[in-house]
């Protein structure tokens, strides 16, 4: 008799547990307010990344097309993957001395692992994170970027 009772208790528990599960999915089916999908290309206008978002490494320039990079190369050594290449130039100073400045700050976005060591290592805070995240291009060479804008110069008060 006991086993017959168990047999029916089994069926009862089974049905109960299955209905509990169905209650969850059924509830979500009838509550469209719970939908969490973000419809990406449509929400581009309202989509704002967090201000610390690591989209790419950029070099901020001010209104006079001036940046803070001295071309010291610390970021190049801090980078674990060789993502950054610094090409320096020598210019003649008015007092006759030669001074090294940045010619090209080359950044290979395709190799970057977004670890942030270059930004942390920079002594003059020349680098920052950009919020841009739509990096897909058809040509790999477009992922190699020159961070200092053409014709830009260093802000005067930066001391090496």
């Amino acid at each position: 008799m006991n086993s017959i009772f168990e047999y029916f208790a089994d069926i009862f528990h089974t049905v109960k547990s299955l209905l509990t599960g169905m209650k969850v999915t059924g509830r979500y089916f009838f509550s469209p307010g719970e939908i969490v999908t973000q419809q990406y290309p449509e929400n581009r206008k309202t989509l704002k990344m967090y201000d610390r978002f690591k989209g790419e490494v950029i070099m901020p320039h001010n209104d006079h097309n001036e940046h803070r990079c001295t071309g010291c190369g610390i970021c190049e050594t801090a980078c674990p993957n060789g993502t950054i290449e610094i090409i320096q130039a020598r210019i003649d100073m008015p007092d006759g001395k030669k001074k090294r400045i940045i010619d090209k700050h080359i950044y290979h976005l395709g190799m970057c692992t977004f670890c942030g060591l270059c930004i942390k290592a920079c002594p003059s805070d020349a680098l920052a994170w950009g919020q841009e995240f739509e990096h897909a291009v058809f040509d790999r060479s477009k992922l190699t970027k020159t961070l200092n804008q053409p014709g830009s110069s260093i802000i005067k008060d930066i001391v090496e």
């Binding site: 999915t25 979500y28 089916f29 939908i35 969490v36 999908t37 419809q39």
Partner: peptide
């Protein structure tokens, strides 16, 4: 569509 609504998605759109 049904499975999408059960899974908090919008499904094909």
């Amino acid at each position: 569509k049904v499975c999408a609504f059960m899974q908090n998605r919008v499904g094909p759109n």
